[in-house]
Design a protein around this nucleic acid. Structure first.
Length: 408
DNA sequence: TCTGGGGTCCTAGGACCC
DNA sequence: TCTGGGGTCCTAGGACCC
């Protein structure tokens, strides 16, 4: 059956939210940046984009291009809050809303067309309500599948509404560079170019066997993408696969070498990972330590633990063990800790007083931190870091309460 | 003031087992 | 006096997305 899919992409989301919450920023070149020392441009307002300011740009480069650029540290709580409101609004038009990121969503409105007349009508209603309630614009793509809906939403920004009709797909794709498709990044684009494939039209006609030989299972999907075929369903939060890993990483404000100093950051990261794992109600059996050296070379080492773990101290000790198995070649600029092989955590009554005491202490600390924000309460060894880790933001973060987390 | 952070999926090689 | 072979787990790295 023919589906009708919407992709909704908030325009310059973080920057637009800041301009809404602070009128002094409206109409001006604004860039949202991370709240730490070493950071990049996360989002630029359209006024800033006119100067060539882009996501991922370094600050000194951005200031060269636009000396009047206003830099605003990211306010993750605010963006998450606004995002949640927008998602709920979309859910008035179909339960099939897939939260793709904090500022993007797919809607399968196939079953809602009778009620709301047309996909364009739904898009119009959503756009005008988001504008009225939040003062924000978005670009909407309408198409028979997610791949094409996402492509369509990219076609007009800001405040766009673009439909790719089923009988127009071949024409749209014929001369479209393959890199425009979601899922074909720089590397794949380069590899395809070496095979003489530059446009989606060429990709669609290219022999699948050759694609398979060069790209493995991805080759099959590439062939379909070239023809605009994508059968993947829109997954509501309840249908989304469960989280598979939980991790945190941070670029340090300066490169460090001493084990003691590194260990202190690992404790902080392990605490963040542990608390999130506990909030999700999961334990994990593999701990991965990631390091980035001063020269930006990055590597990771992982270790399977004898049992499932969830306490911050356990995660910390595992990370520390890995660290101690390494000979550091350079000062470290980034540290990351990740917990994987996750399972729903079984809560059994602890056998021993000591363990029972520790469990209730952990739960109490988690409770305070949930309510008052990261690191309201923390082990004394972290005290000098207070506040430093509390405003990490990431576009990939799911809005509060939107992420499917099945608590056992 | 040199380059963020959180994820998913795939690959490839080695260990180990039957 | 080798050159089986499949399955699973583990590890490291890379591509991609926002």
């Amino acid at each position: 059956m023919e589906r009708t899919i919407l992709h909704i992409d908030m325009n310059a989301f973080f920057a637009a939210v800041e301009q809404q919450s602070n009128p002094a920023l409206r109409g001006r070149p604004v860039a949202v940046i991370g709240s730490r020392q070493r950071t990049i441009i996360l989002t630029a307002s359209y006024e800033a984009r006119a100067y060539g300011i882009k996501t991922g740009m370094m600050l000194h480069e951005a200031r060269q291009k636009c000396p009047d650029l206003i830099l605003v540290p990211a306010n993750n709580r605010l963006y998450t809050h606004v995002s949640s409101g927008i998602i709920r609004l979309m859910q008035d038009y179909t339960p099939q809303v897939e939260v793709f990121s904090i500022d993007e969503a797919f809607l399968d409105v196939t079953g809602s067309l009778n009620v709301f007349t047309s996909a364009e009508r739904i898009a119009y209603l959503i756009k005008s309500r988001i504008k009225a309630r939040f003062g924000l614009t978005c670009s909407v793509g309408i198409a028979p599948n997610k791949l094409l809906a996402k492509l369509a939403s990219e076609m007009k920004k800001p405040d766009g509404l673009t439909r790719i009709a089923a009988d127009d797909v071949a024409r749209v794709l014929e001369n479209l560079p393959v890199g425009e498709l979601c899922g074909i990044g720089r590397r794949t684009q380069e590899k395809l170019a070496r095979l003489g494939v530059h446009t989606c039209g060429e990709l669609g006609r290219f022999p699948v066997a050759v694609l398979r030989a060069h790209f493995g299972v991805v080759g099959e999907r590439l062939a379909l993408m070239g023809r605009g075929i994508d059968g993947s369903p829109v997954l509501s939060p309840e249908q989304e696969p469960e989280v598979k890993t939980v991790g945190h990483g941070m670029t340090l404000e300066r490169d460090i070498s001493s084990r003691e100093e590194i260990a202190r950051f690992l404790l902080q990261l392990a605490e963040m990972v542990g608390r999130r794992a506990r909030r999700y109600g999961v334990s994990g059996q593999t701990v991965t330590l990631t390091l980035r050296y001063a020269d930006f070379s990055t590597f990771s080492r992982q270790r399977v633990q004898p049992q499932q773990i969830w306490r911050s101290e356990e995660i910390y000790h595992a990370a520390l063990q890995i660290l101690d198995s390494l000979l550091l070649a350079q000062p470290v600029r980034l540290l990351g800790v990740r917990l994987s092989q996750l399972q729903p955590r079984e809560r059994q009554i602890p056998l021993f007083d000591e363990e029972r005491r520790r469990e209730s202490l952990t739960a109490a600390l988690d409770g305070v931190n949930e309510r008052y924000g990261e690191f309201s309460v923390m082990p004394a060894s972290l005290l000098p870091l207070k506040g430093k880790g509390s405003h990490v933001i990431s576009p990939a973060w799911r809005p509060e309460g939107i992420r499917n987390v099945k608590v056992s």
